[in-house]
Nucleic acid binder design. Structure first.
Length: 422
DNA sequence: TCTGGGGTCCTAGGACCC
DNA sequence: TCTGGGGTCCTAGGACCC
């Protein structure tokens, strides 16, 4: 017996979070921008109707924004992350197991709930999220994760489903799959979609009926699994325990190009310190660090330069100042004069739980440094980030990303909490 | 004139996701 | 002036070893 899986997905999530605290955004076209105010990454239904596409660079849609009075917001991840906690809390009572798949999607394992009318159950779940957070959601139900995901997309697209699509039954499933573009199936990207189209495979129905052997030739084992899932045979489990993460990154584009090494070093220092903080928050240490920086690849007419340097770190560490020392060395070695650098970052790999860290022969216990890091975390937690920073980082951040229309931190910053007056 | 086969580990790069 | 950030998984190919 295959147990049903549901995917609950928040509609236009970032926009919906903003609307929860600003009523003037309701009913009008709204977009939320990526970091650095670069491109549109969330659009309200009204903005979609005006032809704003996912990922549209904001400087190419200025005219449209002006002509239609589209409201434009910078992204506010503190708000979206906190709202997610509330959404998950609302979902929790409706199943025993679930997998938080992304900031706005949760897979719900309905094992043990088969005796219920699951469509009604899903509607209750959706209503609970709405009551607690004001955020609208859609739910897809199916025998596999891929079909639940596809059902969710169908529920979003086709008003016939009224927000909840159930693809456990063959006739509905076939009907939906025959009308669903192959390129929109979860796991089929641009490259695979193009290869499939050459074979005349353009719908999810075609894809389901494709020979496994042929699938292997085009894609990898991943495409084979995907086809099994479309046939209703589970090839992916609902992952109810959070897997150990493998890597971590802190990368940013600059508001304006950087052409001197000291300024670049300041930015990289900040990223290294932030990377250390993230490691400590997760109780991890890293064994490998890569620092990279490059010019703007969207401007091929300008001189291009891209560099990265990687280091094995021994002992493995979560000490921001140790990370910074490696990163500095990388920047010093890779720096070339005469380029406008527009992005840099720190990548950490070989992550392992702090308690499992291998001891080296001459490993001092690092207790003092650990205390220093804890103290910095506390100071920056209480008095705001960048209160205590290493000198390399500096206090001037002329290169900072643009964020010109960020909403208040309504739920995570005491001074930003909305006040209700009688 | 002639030079194996098979295994592991690591890394870079591609593809995909939200 | 101006195009995000942070992840995962898979495969091919090189280095190395016996």
């Amino acid at each position: 017996m295959i147990s049903p899986v549901a995917l609950i997905d928040c509609n236009n999530y970032y926009v919906s979070c903003e609307r929860a605290f600003d009523a003037t955004l309701v009913g009008v076209p709204v977009i939320v921008l990526s970091n650095n105010d670069g491109c549109a990454i969330a659009r309200s239904a009204e903005a979609k109707a005006l032809g704003i596409r996912m990922g549209d660079p904001v400087h190419l849609i200025r005219d449209k924004v002006k002509a239609h009075g589209i409201r434009v917001l910078s992204s506010n991840y503190a708000l979206y992350g906190d709202m997610q906690r509330r959404v998950v809390a609302a979902i929790q009572p409706f199943a025993r197991d679930f997998e938080i798949y992304s900031i706005d999607e949760t897979f719900v394992d309905f094992a043990g709930f088969e005796h219920l009318d699951l469509v009604a159950h899903a509607r209750d779940m959706s209503a609970q999220v709405r009551r607690w957070t004001t955020i609208p959601t859609c739910v897809g139900i199916g025998p596999t994760k891929t079909l639940a995901k596809l059902a969710n997309a169908a529920a979003k697209k086709n008003p016939l489903f009224n927000g909840v699509a159930d693809l456990r039954e063959d006739t509905t499933r076939d009907w939906v799959l025959d009308r669903f573009p192959a390129g929109d199936v979860w796991g089929v990207g641009r490259a695979t979609a193009a290869k499939l189209a050459d074979l005349g495979i353009t719908t999810a129905g075609h894809l389901r009926d494709m020979a496994m052997k042929q699938a292997r030739g085009i894609g990898t084992v991943v495409l084979e699994r995907l086809i099994a899932e479309l046939r209703g045979i589970p090839a992916m489990a609902v992952e109810t325990i959070e897997p150990q993460r493998k890597g971590m990154a802190v990368t940013r584009s600059f508001g304006t190009p950087v052409d001197d090494v000291d300024t670049l070093m300041g930015a990289v220092a900040q990223y290294a310190m932030r990377a250390g903080e993230k490691l400590r928050q997760h109780g991890l240490v890293a064994g490998r660090l890569t620092v990279f920086f490059h010019t703007n690849p969207h401007k091929p007419e300008r001189p291009q330069y891209s560099a990265s340097r990687a280091f094995s770190m021994q002992p493995m560490t979560s000490d921001g100042l140790a990370l910074l020392a490696y990163a500095r060395r990388g920047v010093e070695r890779a720096w070339r004069e005469g380029y406008g650098i527009t992005k840099a970052g720190i990548l950490l790999d070989d992550l392992i739980g702090e308690d499992l860290r291998p001891r080296t022969l001459f490993d001092d216990d690092g207790e003092q440094r650990a205390r220093l890091m804890r103290a910095m975390d506390e100071v920056n937690g209480c008095f705001g980030k960048f209160t205590a920073v290493p000198a390399t980082q500096g206090f001037r951040r002329g290169w900072s990303a643009r964020s010109e229309a960020r909403s208040p931190n309504y739920t995570t910053q005491i001074t930003d909490v909305p006040v209700a007056r009688a």
